[in-house]
Write a protein that binds this DNA or RNA. Sequence first.
DNA 1: TCACTTATGCTCAAACTGAGCATTGTGCCG
DNA 2: CGGCACAATGCTCAGTTTGAGCATAAGTGA
Lengths: 332, 332
Amino acid sequence: MTTAQETEGEAQSTLSNPSAVGLVAVIVAATDGEPRALTVQVGGQARGRSDGLPAGPLVPEHPTLERGLRAWVERQTHQRLGYVEQLYTFGDRDRQGDDDGGLHSLSVAYLALVRELRPAGLAEAAWRNWYHYLPWEDWRAGRPDSLGEIEAKLLAWAEGSGDPKQRRRREDRLGLTFGLCGGAWNEERVLERYELLFEAGLIPEAQGQSGEARDADLTVTGQPMALDHRRVLATAIGRLRGKIKYRPVVFELMPPTFTLFQLQRTVEALSGTNLHKQNFRRLVAQQGLVEETDGVTSGATGRPARLVRFRREVLLERPAPGFRLRPARRPT
Amino acid sequence: MTTAQETEGEAQSTLSNPSAVGLVAVIVAATDGEPRALTVQVGGQARGRSDGLPAGPLVPEHPTLERGLRAWVERQTHQRLGYVEQLYTFGDRDRQGDDDGGLHSLSVAYLALVRELRPAGLAEAAWRNWYHYLPWEDWRAGRPDSLGEIEAKLLAWAEGSGDPKQRRRREDRLGLTFGLCGGAWNEERVLERYELLFEAGLIPEAQGQSGEARDADLTVTGQPMALDHRRVLATAIGRLRGKIKYRPVVFELMPPTFTLFQLQRTVEALSGTNLHKQNFRRLVAQQGLVEETDGVTSGATGRPARLVRFRREVLLERPAPGFRLRPARRPT
DNA sequence: TCACTTATGCTCAAACTGAGCATTGTGCCG
DNA sequence: CGGCACAATGCTCAGTTTGAGCATAAGTGA
């Protein structure tokens, strides 16, 4: 809130307080049924280089943040960005990794979806499977093995709280986010899970990292990223997993024509779960999300599949077209 | 994207490029079945004062943006903020209202829900019904009258486009957002509607405002706000309307105990639609969102209603407890 | 030609929705 | 005090939507 005096004056320039503002982008593609994010190598000599998300300064030339981001990414990667969405603005003092000399430093994070992956343009850039960084999020082959160890440590962390009230609260959170203590796994709570692991000291990026995290088995707690970028990635995944349920954004990741099964694989890749095949097709058909082309697949094993394309008209018809993911028990 | 050189160096201080960053808050309450936002008086002598949202500088003392906001609001309004959520970071050069001498100016907007409305603390602050600013969003008494005039003007705007392709696109957008041309009204697209009106020149806040907008009947296009604050408000309403469907946030606006009908009124106030009473209760009951107290209402006309309270445990049980609003035809 | 693999069609019971009708308490008004 | 108006609650019912499978079709490779 601001007092009347503070807001006096047309320009409202009391908003100032110069800060360092940067952009971060989670650029997502899906090929071969795997979800991928564009990563770059960052970091100097001291701690060695590590993977990070593409980040850069806010360019003041553009009228809009989003347009600035588009131009910046497209110039650097020669990628045509399809869908772009603002994710979140991160501004935690103690987690940005730097303080930039007393300035508050903010990162405005964006999510972008691209259709195909080009050679990534930059030498230092690479497309990486995002579960490489968050392995516990991939349930497509059943419950990830790494979860056993993670749960044990999380439970120990909850137990370790002296205050029984706090311990209760921690257990509740475990139930909510990781489905422990009788809770169910909710694939959208990616960020909450990451934050919980962070708090529990299982994430090496944490500054006051315990020896625990530093020695962590990376196949269990995943590949670290520079600064707070894994948090940004987790935010992106969570958002995307939520969005595909009520907006046809997956098609931004698909080639012009594709089979229903390829579509399913992509949705599964994003959501990290398996879907019931027949019901998936029924859903897609009912919603009118695609229309048939006269092409069929060839070459691959099994019966050839009809190629379909996205029906842009649904955007005008349906209020909220998307996939309300219903996981299959076990067989796809 | 950033070249390898640009990300060189531990501190990643190339993110810099100092900018002016401010906070804006949409503080929401619901009383007497009306949705309200806390507004303040802003602006100098030149254009006269006008309503605005509470806004202030980013305070660098706090470790987290959100905590900074909480402290700031609670200190100024003596309001205890229940739920707080980051909304969006606005950074359009041409719409911030000021350029602050070449700095890019950003506003990080937050949504906060409060349970009761205190006298608002500040002399200049007031709780206003949010439909005062966006009258076309309130469908509780049926289709708003003002929509007739709005539609006429929007259609004229679409027609007015020389390029038939652009005109087609404009018509599609009208259908999507305002439900014209055979589309359906989707109560979540608050921001899209506002932006469309803005583009169509019906919003006086637009800088290159036509005489049209300036002379607009405020009962039709709503009360203007300072700077871009109506856009922020529209963002908040849209977000909240979406959120109540899958997260029990409405309870942040309710007193400790309440009747099911009061709850329904609140949900209706937020969503701007009417709901089928019996089905609404069934939904609430099925989801286990509330538990009965042994109190009942008294005094009012009609049969006394049981008082209930929010069942916190649902947060631990249900994956996504909320109201999937199903509007009633006409009778409540 | 057989074995295998994936694509597609179709069925069925259970759960969920959208709309109403019917009944039950209360305060108020002659 | 009986009748009314007005909410609160209970309950029904048909039409959909879901979750799970069974069955068949149509290629590939041995």
